[in-house]
């Protein structure tokens, strides 16, 4: 049986790890290599690492640092930030990334998702879906001036061959007050792709709520691992108690 994935998400600003609230007010957290080492020792299911400023600052992701992060990981790693051509993807896969996470380039040039998935295979192309509430629905949060509904974006990247979605509720980011189950249900109904729910996990009961109210098979979190004593294993034990399949190790 496929196990629920609990995935620590490391957000990086080009210098160190940071944690934002609602995508602003970054708080410094420390060294990404050290964090990767700790999560590897804890046997986590997967790790996500995103340079959240690379696209905004129009720079490439820092490959030597990524390489040092991946070196610590004997589990799958998804890397995102500043990906703007096929060479960027090639560079990341070559140093051992399993998946690359694309957002800005998919908004600017939807054709890019198709090029990338045709060339490297759908399985390594993950799309970041940063959803911000807008009236009754959600739009993709971005600084590029692109106005697109979340569902339209999701359908577009799925049709273009994306392999996975990371759905991040911008309004819940860093607030540690629970997930946006409405958003996750909306996306999981609209798409057949595997998806990772992100944004709002702050206490163990939030994960219970998410997995009771949605059919999602993976969850990403950041704040709970930085600002509380809880580990990915604690979350998995909580999910096991409500009958969800998890990998305990």
């Amino acid at each position: 049986m496929l196990k629920i994935r609990v995935i620590p998400v490391l957000t990086f600003n080009g210098i160190g790890l940071v944690k934002t609230k609602q995508f602003s007010n970054p708080r410094m957290l420390g060294n990404p290599i050290q964090a990767a080492k700790v999560f590897n020792a804890r046997g986590v299911d997967e790790l996500v690492f995103i340079d959240i400023l690379a696209s905004k600052q129009k720079r490439k992701i820092n490959l030597p640092i990524i390489q040092d992060v991946i070196k610590e990981c004997y589990m799958p790693v998804g890397i995102g930030g500043g990906i703007s051509d096929l060479w960027d993807i090639n560079d990341l896969l070559r140093i051992g990334a399993d998946k690359v996470i694309v957002k800005s380039k998919a908004l600017i040039n939807p054709e890019f998702v198709k090029e990338a998935s045709d060339f490297f295979g759908s399985q390594c192309i993950t799309i970041a879906v940063d959803a911000k509430k807008h009236g009754d629905g959600y739009k993709i949060y971005n600084n590029l001036g692109v106005d697109i509904d979340v569902i339209d974006f999701v359908r577009m990247v799925e049709d273009s061959g994306a392999g996975e979605l990371i759905v991040n509720a911008v309004d819940n980011d860093g607030m540690m007050n629970g997930f946006d189950c409405q958003l996750i249900r909306l996306v999981e109904t609209a798409s057949k792709l595997p998806l990772i729910a992100l944004g709002g996990g702050g206490d163990l009961h939030h994960y219970k709520e998410l997995f009771t109210n949605t059919n999602v098979e993976a969850v990403g979190s950041s704040s709970i691992f930085s600002f509380t004593q809880f580990t990915p294993l604690d979350i998995k034990k909580e999910l096991q108690a409500i009958g969800k399949p998890v990998r305990l190790c």
Binding site: M1, L2, K3, R5, D45, E46, S122, Q123, G163, E164, K192, L193, P194, L195, E217, A218, R247
Partner: peptide, 10 residues
Amino acid sequence: KRIPHLGWNS
């Protein structure tokens, strides 16, 4: 089921 088959399975 969702495709790709992605994650830990026994």
